[in-house]
């Protein structure tokens, strides 16, 4: 049975200019052991998707569609039921562990908290388990460090502690929102390796949210490229890094500087700027910046069309996109 099935997920936020649709008709499915990346620029809806999955969307937001975890629709549950699932069957790690961890509590206590809450494990036993978890995520001298407060750890160590906390109850689904963006590149590598090891070892499903295409390439099996709240392209990582079908995905890759890009080669920026969600048309969200947009693109939101097996893009001009000469 599919672990997580998301169908037509739409998240609308109230703004002074009316409802802004931060996530539009997003659908995907994920099994245990599978890894999915959500990639896109700021305001594309990737983080809002994660928050909605966890039931942590901002107050006043409207969430529509279906989020089924093992067949149970999370959108029909009340807060008490969600609390039973959050941190237990699905857990999340955030970009900035300094703000996600409690500064006043030793990290061992924080790591043991989900066990005490969800599993009714006694304090001493939970804290012993916390040390085992901290050791597993590679925190040096875990037994002593369990007594340390977050500010006494480095950024990488804090992120390890947060991963330990997320793992405490052995969740089926781990959501990681830009888990390495605040870290230096050599530390980023260590943390990504750890996440992948744990996913393989425990057979969890992983949703990794990032703006970094390199991180996607090295971490996940499947990718959804998001723009303006819509999932514009979905494919296996191999297929996407081999061929981009959607003009936005094409533009995103062509704009990315890469080491060893031929000298004299020029980046191809996407004209214009990342739009405000409240300003987006009820059509293709990329239409205003798209180099091959046509009249029909403004008429209605494009349906997902097949590019190849397991590879879909929401674009009605896939042929024209295929004929573009772009890196």
């Amino acid at each position: 049975m599919t672990l997580l099935a998301v169908e037509d997920l739409t998240v609308s936020l109230p703004t002074r200019r009316g409802w802004a649709r931060a996530v539009r008709d997003l659908s995907f499915a994920l099994d245990r052991g599978q890894t999915l990346g959500l990639v896109g620029e700021s305001g594309c809806g990737k983080s809002m998707t994660a928050l909605a999955l966890m039931g942590l969307q901002p107050e006043g937001a409207r969430v529509a569609g279906r989020i089924a975890l093992d067949g149970e629709d999370l959108l029909t549950l009340d807060e008490a039921d969600l609390c039973r699932i959050r941190g237990n069957r699905m857990a999340m790690i955030f970009q900035e562990p300094m703000t996600a961890l409690n500064p006043l509590q030793p990290i061992g206590r924080q790591v043991s908290e989900p066990l005490r809450l969800h599993r009714r494990v006694g304090r001493a036993e939970a804290e012993r388990e916390a040390v085992r978890l901290l050791d597993r995520v590679g925190l040096p001298n875990a037994a002593q460090r369990a007594h340390a407060h977050p500010h006494m750890l480095s950024g990488g160590q804090r992120q390890r502690a947060m991963i330990a906390m997320a793992l405490a109850c052995g969740p089926d689904l781990l959501i990681a929102d830009e888990p390495t963006t605040a870290l230096d590149v050599t530390i980023q590598g260590q943390i990504l390796d750890l996440v992948i090891e744990l996913v393989d070892e425990r057979g969890m499903a992983l949703i990794l949210i990032t703006h970094d295409l390199g991180v996607i390439a090295e971490t996940v099996d499947r990718v959804i490229v998001m723009y303006g709240g819509a999932g514009v392209e979905e494919a296996s990582s191999e297929a996407l890094f081999d061929y981009r079908a959607h003009p936005y995905s094409q533009g995103l890759f062509a704009a990315l500087p890469q080491i060893g890009l031929a000298r004299g080669a020029r980046l191809e920026p996407i004209p214009g700027t990342v739009p405000d969600l409240a300003d987006l048309p009820d059509a293709c969200t990329f239409v205003d910046r798209c180099p091959i947009a046509a009249g029909a693109c403004r008429a209605a939101p494009p349906p997902p069309l097949a590019v190849a097996r397991g590879h879909r893009a929401r674009c009605i001009r896939l042929e024209e996109a295929r004929n573009r000469s772009i890196r």
Partner: peptide, 13 residues
């Protein structure tokens, strides 16, 4: 440092 930069050239988990 060079090795640590994840490459977006080709996907390989």
């Amino acid at each position: 440092l060079r090795q640590a930069v994840p490459s977006a050239a080709v996907a390989n988990r």
